[in-house]
Design a protein around this nucleic acid. Structure first.
Length: 879
DNA sequence: ATTAAGTTCCC
DNA sequence: CGGGAACTTAA
């Protein structure tokens, strides 16, 4: 049974008439006398008559419940229904009335394409073959189960017809000829704009009774709680119109929600920049991220990890309070701990923003958890030299007793070395017995003995003795030796440390020398090597072992290094090559940092692992690039036996690959080598999302830009986190008066036009990030030149004093200066008044009293004595 | 008084 | 158009 009268839908009332939001439109509005009276006054032209209540209407205020309505049931069967062919876009900028001048795009369909085809929301009336009217109106968006209790929205859907603005609802005639699809927007400009605040409007237009006032108040309260002004949806109704009476054909349908793009409550969530992209697995690292507008109480920073099948295997939230959200645009938070503390390699996870209110998320960005130092410390194998008793030195106790220094040791030191040299026979025998037959090893041993051992041993004994406290601790004259070996990257804290390091090297030398003579078998030999390299007594401060120490000696003629590495290689102990110090550096890292080319070559030959990250996530290759290492070192790291593919694209904990670093360092050579070795040119670094091309543009490096474009398989339309392509970035930089970039821009434009990726770049405003960068530069500049100069300057020049006096004596502002310098008490004595140039005297006095030029400058600055400040600045600049 | 949210204006 | 920024109001 149809109770059509009750089903009547809505009566449009202009807002100036006032109506009850809560009941509109699902409650039948009291009957009006004629259809004409229901025309909205502000939509007189072309607007169809609105619904007319059926005369049988049983209850004027009955709420129509679709869920129990017979129509609802029918439509579920084969009856007519409305099908949404095209959903509206899910985000749209709602415009205010004041923004309505001019044309401002209409509400497009979801599959609308920016450039090509514009689509519009579209519905079809199915299973119905008579003429009908499809009505579109703006409703509040609610959950699915709320679908039938939704209410009209406080905003309006406005259609522009010429100069007229027509509010919703909008009706469209459909029939067999036109087809039963309604595409209510085609060609028309539609904008959603906010309805006037109902309660207030009413207030203006008529006086209210107390009761009404209360009702409105309550209503408003209720509304404010449940109406989300930033989400709307479209509702489509289908009617059969007979004599201007609208009979619903089926249940209305609702589109999905349309979010207000401009509101922080529904706007885009986005991470635009982060200052770090890694944290140790312990968490607690403070990270600043810049984000698009968020509401502080309604945003979370979520970390999550996906396995290979993209299943989420872990997640946690960044720790921060709403006080840590700066002006809706930046969040400072601490990283959560990762689920495991004992990871050995960095774990790639994602970071994203999340809005609890609607579950919206930002596009996730890469993030990584790195091993904790503790884990790394534990990981380092320790060996106690139990079985390795033939050693001349006990490894148990570091302070050696004199007894441990073997007679043979003494002999070698003192006696003629050429006699001992015969020992290579022994070595040969030993090597044979171990199935290690290497003439190279043999040769190295010989040269090691000839060139290394002998001229250092003399120093060893005295130094050892000193260390043992057996020799009077005379003030250590820094020996040329010690100086020579002062490690640049290992940075000892004292001469003792240097001594200790040298003594470790020396001890290892002598140990090996004498040990090899004993013809050890393979087992003992490896045991010895293990002990010498990672035995606790051979680790010096900073966790460095002999190899770290040797790696730092940039001496291609270091025969002992070569010999030791050869030994490790022959005895297949390559794992001993990769032990890390407390900074996570392997000997290879240190060798690269120290540019010890020969050592690097030997290490790599001996199968050192070049893919290991130090505690900054840098592989040896990163370091080589950062240090601007010569090509031969880069080539060593980029060619076999190194397995380049294992690490050429690795990100360090700063989120950068070697190629990013090469470009950032303006290192064309490294850039070339990396690309020749198939480094990925299209990776985004992790903090700002810059590709190498972005970085080249940022640095205005034309050469590198050209090289990247011409020699790499580059995707030049890749964007960074701000959605800037390199081209756009170049344009922004040009706008910032960096004319060098114009060439870079031209090159890019030309290239992109050639390969068809070019699209015009519009820069409306100067981008905020660039502002920030400029600000950074300013600060940097200030810090670097002026501030540094200020640090060096202790007094005013005579000229400056006079010039300042000229200004301040007149304005008497020197009195304020004195006050602010805390010499107020002296002002009372009139001591300065009495002199000819009070400012000059004051300044001299202040400087003599320990005030700095900078302090005085800043005070003058705060006193708005710009001229005076300028004088001081220019004086300082000249220094 | 301060800050966020909401509105208007402008390029 | 879309994106800000300036301005106003509410909390």
């Amino acid at each position: 049974m149809f109770q059509l009268g009750i089903l009547s839908n809505s009566i449009h009332l202009s807002n100036t008439n006032g109506f009850d939001m809560n009941t509109y439109p699902n409650i039948l509005t009291p009957p009006m006398d004629s259809p004409a009276s229901m025309l909205s006054p502000d939509s007189g032209c072309g607007s169809p008559p609105y619904l007319i209540p059926h005369s049988n209407s049983t209850s004027s205020y009955g709420i129509y419940d679709y869920a129990t309505s017979p129509i609802h049931v029918i439509s579920k069967d084969a009856g007519p229904y409305i099908k949404i062919l095209e959903q509206p876009v899910d985000r749209f900028r709602f415009r205010y009335k004041s923004e309505m001048s001019g044309t401002h795009g209409s509400l497009n369909g979801k599959s609308s394409d920016r450039s090509r085809k514009q689509t519009f929301p579209c519905v079809e009336l199915v299973n119905y073959h008579k003429p009908a009217v499809i009505r579109c109106s703006l409703y509040q968006y609610g959950k699915e189960d709320m679908a039938h209790t939704r209410q009209l929205h406080a905003h309006r859907l406005v259609k522009k017809q010429g100069t007229d603005e027509i509010d919703d609802p909008h009706d469209i005639q459909v029939n067999a000829e036109t087809g039963f699809t309604a595409n209510p927007r085609t060609g028309k400009k539609n904008t959603i704009l906010k309805r006037e605040d109902i309660a207030r409007t009413e207030h203006k237009h008529r006086s209210l009774t107390k009761k009404e006032e209360l009702e409105i108040k309550l209503l408003a309260e209720k509304e404010s709680k449940c109406i989300n002004l930033n989400v709307v949806c479209l509702r489509f109704d289908a009617y059969e119109v007979i004599n201007n009476i609208y009979y619903p054909i089926c249940t209305p349908v609702y589109t999905h929600g349309i979010n207000n793009l401009k509101s922080a409550l529904t706007g885009d969530l986005k991470i635009v920049r982060m200052d770090h992209c890694t944290s140790t697995c312990r968490g607690g690292r403070e990270i600043f991220i810049l984000v698009e507008k968020v509401t502080k109480k309604n945003v979370k920073v979520r970390f999550f990890e996906l396995d290979d099948e993209d299943n989420e295997v872990w997640s946690d939230y960044g720790r921060f309070s709403d006080l840590d959200v700066h002006h809706q645009y930046a969040i400072v938070f601490k990283t959560p701990p990762y689920k495991r503390m004992d990871i050995e390699h960095q774990v790639r996870v994602y970071i994203e923003l999340q809005r609890p209110s609607d579950g919206a998320r930002s596009e996730p960005k890469d993030f990584a958890f790195t091993p904790c130092e503790i884990t790394l410390g534990k990981k380092r194998p320790r060996y106690n030299s139990e079985d390795y008793s033939s050693s001349q030195f006990s490894t148990e106790d570091l302070p050696l007793t004199l007894n441990h220094i073997s007679p043979s040791y003494e002999i070698q030191t003192v006696s003629n070395p050429t006699n001992e040299y015969v020992n290579s026979e022994d070595l040969e025998a030993a090597l044979h017995r171990n199935n290690v037959d290497s003439s190279e090893l043999d040769n190295l041993y010989k040269s090691f003995i000839e060139n290394e051992l002998l001229f250092t041993t003399e120093n060893i004994s005295t130094r050892e003795l000193k260390n043992l406290g057996l020799v009077m601790d005379t003030p250590i004259v820094s020996s040329s030796d010690a100086k020579k070996t002062l490690p640049s990257s290992i940075s000892p804290c004292s001469k003792q440390v240097v001594n200790k390091e040298q003594s470790i090297i020396d001890r290892v030398k002598t140990e090996i020398y004498s040990f090899v003579k004993t013809n050890p078998n393979t087992a003992r030999m490896t045991m010895m090597l293990k002990n010498l390299i990672c035995g606790e007594n051979y680790i010096v401060s900073g966790g460095n072992n002999v190899l770290h120490l040797l790696a730092n000696e940039n001496n291609s003629k270091n025969h002992f290094s070569k010999y030791l590495l050869q030994l490790l290689s022959e005895y297949k102990q390559s794992s001993l090559l990769d032990i890390t110090n407390l900074k996570g550096q392997t000997p290879l890292h240190i060798a690269v940092e120290a540019c010890s080319t020969a050592f690097i070559e030997k290490l790599i030959e001996a199968q050192a692992n070049a893919s290991l990250p130090d505690h900054n996530g840098n592989t040896a290759l990163h370091i080589a690039v950062i240090k601007n290492a010569p090509s031969d070192i880069l080539n060593l790291l980029l060619s076999p036996p190194c397995n380049v593919n294992d690490y050429i694209n690795n990100f360090n904990y700063d989120g950068k690959t070697p190629l990013h670093l090469a470009v950032k360092m303006n290192n064309l050579n490294a850039t070339k080598l990396l690309i020749l070795n198939h480094a990925d040119v299209n990776l985004n670094e992790m903090k700002l999302g810059c590709t190498p091309l972005h970085l080249a543009v940022t640095d205005q490096n034309l050469e590198i830009t050209n090289f990247l474009l011409e020699n790499a398989d580059i995707m030049c339309d890749k964007t960074d986190f701000r959605e800037y392509t390199a081209l756009k970035l170049a344009k922004v930089l040009i706008n910032k008066n960096q004319p060098i970039t114009e060439e870079v821009y031209d090159v890019l434009e030309k290239f992109m036009k050639k390969n068809g990726t070019f699209t015009e770049v519009f820069i409306d405003e100067v981008a905020d990030i660039s502002d920030e960068e400029v600000e950074e530069l300013k600060v940097e500049l200030e810090n670097s030149s002026l501030n540094l100069n200020y640090n060096n300057i202790t007094n005013f020049t005579e000229d400056c004093l006079n010039a300042l006096s000229d200004i301040l004596d007149k304005t008497k502002n020197w009195r304020n200066l004195a006050e602010l310098l805390d010499y107020g008490h002296l002002l009372k004595t009139n001591i300065f008044e009495s002199v000819e140039r009070p400012t000059k005297s004051l300044l001299n006095f202040a400087i003599g009293n320990g005030d700095t030029v900078k302090q005085i400058r800043d005070i003058l600055d705060s006193l708005n004595e710009t001229a005076a400040v300028k004088i001081i600045d220019s004086m300082v600049e000249k220094v």
